[in-house]
Write a protein that binds this DNA or RNA. Structure first.
Lengths: 232, 232
DNA sequence: ACCTGAACACCGTTCAAGT
DNA sequence: ACCTGAACACCGTTCAAGT
């Protein structure tokens, strides 16, 4: 896991690389949430003094940016399939793939929300979504707005799900989340907030992925309705 | 600003209350962002030792929760008007009011995302939205899902706007944000990411409130399309 | 009940020094 | 170029003590 051979490997073996620090950061994030991913902890896990991190990254924010870039890079844009498939299906496949990758590293969700997505992988993802929306028949202006709406929905819903849990940036397994949501909802006083209590009874049963897809489809319907023309 | 007379004001004037700490916390948050709102800074601003905070709040998370509750409480649910108005207009008015209140205290946006909204004011807000959706003709199940979608959109879009800025939880004035977005977009290499660069040219001109309303309307269209029946 | 002084176990970051 | 020891200026929180 550590000490991958660097580019100029002679007898002098390149001891460390930025990737090693990202490995450590991600492992800490997965294990203990955002608070556990301290510069000092990362350094310790790599087996080096705290300030050695600053040889590879200018500051902690740079580590976070690189980490977000890596996870976004793990998203398989191939899931959208070829252009013969309906654009809504293609967007849906990509949204589910994004959800899968981001919930695999729950702590990353909070980081994505907290940092601008301007790295190469993030831009490549943007390009894919924009291509999809262009295929859907949207002009440049509408594609731009629809793209922003879609990203807002995907990242917003993941962030809110994580927030619901109380532990910001941590996203436990789906079953645990349903159970915890049930507890929170059960505590709502039905006499004072009748509608919220009724929602509680309904929502607690929902698997969150179902809700995610439902919301996504409403968004896609809204986008479809805003188009000038034909495409289904 | 400080030392409001407590409930049992005798000659003994009640020196402090939890509200005084929230005043201080909000002021620090507005002035210097989320990092500036430390327990120690809050205490100093109130004019008290750092650990005095723990007489009024069990921990920092409780301060944050109370602060979010206060800001949510400042939302005027009256903007939705009476039931004779079309439900979409009523939702839109509420969404704009929410945006106004939250952008007035930009740092709060990040806090809302990071903590579950389960206080009385948050529940009252939920009730209002659910009532609106019921008036729109949605059954309990659809109202529940639509409510979650709406909240995701409103809070997600505000969080993403703040994130775009690079400074998480801070949301500068609209004009500044447009200028900064223009700079970020201008840095996108058009040869590698042609669509993103095209979007950049389009999006930079948008006032973010316009984009907010556009996205909201697409969401509302999607919700409207999912209803079983009549209402416009 | 309310507040303080002092301390504990942490942070992110810098600086001079070593190889 | 890469890494360390030591330090700086911070955190949130606890504890015993004072009124």
């Amino acid at each position: 896991m550590a000490a991958a051979a660097g580019p100029g490997r002679r007898g002098r073996r390149r001891s460390l690389s930025a990737e090693d620090f990202l490995d450590a950061a991600l492992a800490l994030l997965d294990a203990g949430g955002v608070d556990a991913m301290s510069v000092r902890a990362v350094a310790t896990r790599v087996g080096v003094a705290p300030n050695a991190v600053y040889t590879y990254f200018p500051d902690k924010a740079a580590v976070v940016r690189a980490l977000v870039e890596r996870v976004i890079g793990e998203v398989d844009s191939g899931v959208t399939g070829d252009r013969s498939r309906p654009w809504r299906e293609r967007v849906e496949a990509l949204a589910l793939e994004l959800r899968k990758r981001l919930t695999a590293h729950p702590g990353v969700v909070g980081l994505v929300i907290g940092a601008p997505m301007d790295g190469p992988n993030a831009l490549a993802l943007n390009e894919g979504v924009l291509e999809l929306l262009t295929d859907a028949g949207l002009g440049p202006a509408d594609a731009a707005r629809a793209h922003y709406l879609l990203m807002t929905y995907v990242f917003g819903s993941l962030a809110l799900e994580a927030a619901e849990e109380g532990r910001p940036g941590a996203l436990p397994p789906e079953e645990e989340r349903i159970e915890s949501r049930r507890r929170v909802f059960a505590a709502i006083p039905a006499d004072r907030y009748p509608r919220s209590a009724a929602v509680a009874a309904t929502m607690a049963a929902y698997v969150s992925t179902d809700q995610y897809v439902w919301g996504l489809r409403r968004v896609l319907d809204g986008i479809a309705a805003a188009r000038p023309g034909r495409h289904p």
